[in-house]
């Protein structure tokens, strides 16, 4: 047998920690500066030169005022707007900030329900949402409801709904705005986000973009309350 195995082991036992303090301490500081400061700061600089809008959150302005981000969903309750998916986000109670209350599409604290498929809480919520959805949109009591209209998304900020969901809501929106359904359906069609490169992702409708297009094309909604 060779004995280089034992000699190298003897050597390493004494020298494993020799002269190790300085490189260990310096490496922590150095790599913090390089990977934790230099890299993100350089990226920030270049990204803001190349893509200034996206780097700041893809804000959409109307009449000089920021009204949202292209990426982030908003809560819509009025009949003349398309409604987003349910959202599980919450926020501080305006009456009593020590309590939290449901606050859909609170982009300050993304959240999901995290309920499993057997959860009573989930099933009750879905049932109630389905009833409300049918009432809002004038559907029969046993009409099928698209799954995205009654389930909360992962982020609570999903900006999209399915085309099927948008098509159902088109009736209500057209009625509330007093315009022809065909016109609203055409707007939906114009605002469908198709799979990227015809390949990646499901076709879907960006709700904020669609509602903006709606305001621009068909009788603008009442001015924002408050």
């Amino acid at each position: 047998m060779h004995n280089d195995q034992s000699t190298s082991a003897d050597l390493s036992a004494t020298s494993a920690f020799k002269g190790i303090a300085r490189p260990v301490l310096v490496s922590a500081l150095l790599f913090m500066v390089v990977t934790g400061l230099a890299y993100p700061l350089a990226t920030t600089g270049v990204a803001n030169l190349l893509f200034p809008s996206q780097a700041q959150g893809s804000l959409i302005e109307r009449n000089g005022q920021a009204i949202g981000s292209r990426q982030i969903g908003q809560y819509f309750a009025r009949p003349e707007y398309f409604h987003s998916r349910p959202s599980a986000t919450s926020g501080p109670d305006p009456q009593d900030p020590s309590k939290t209350v449901d606050q859909p599409y609170n982009a300050g604290a993304s959240a999901a329900s995290n309920q499993g498929v057997l959860s009573k809480k989930l099933l009750t919520a879905v049932e109630q949402r389905a009833i409300a959805y049918r009432q809002e949109n004038g559907l029969a009591a046993n009409a099928a409801v698209p799954v995205d209209a009654v389930t909360a998304s992962g982020s609570g900020l999903d900006p999209h709904i399915s085309i099927a969901n948008a098509n159902i809501q088109a009736q209500r929106v057209a009625r509330a705005r007093g315009v022809a359904v065909d016109r609203v359906l055409a707007l939906i069609n114009e605002n469908v986000d198709r799979p990227q490169f015809g390949l990646f992702g499901d076709p879907r409708v960006n709700v904020l973009a669609l509602n903006l297009a709606l305001d621009a094309a068909a009788a603008p909604a009442r001015p924002a309350a408050q």
Partner: peptide, 11 residues
């Protein structure tokens, strides 16, 4: 931002 329906949204 102030959303389309007039709510305050913090991004």
């Amino acid at each position: 931002v102030t959303t389309l329906e007039g709510a305050r949204q913090q991004l």
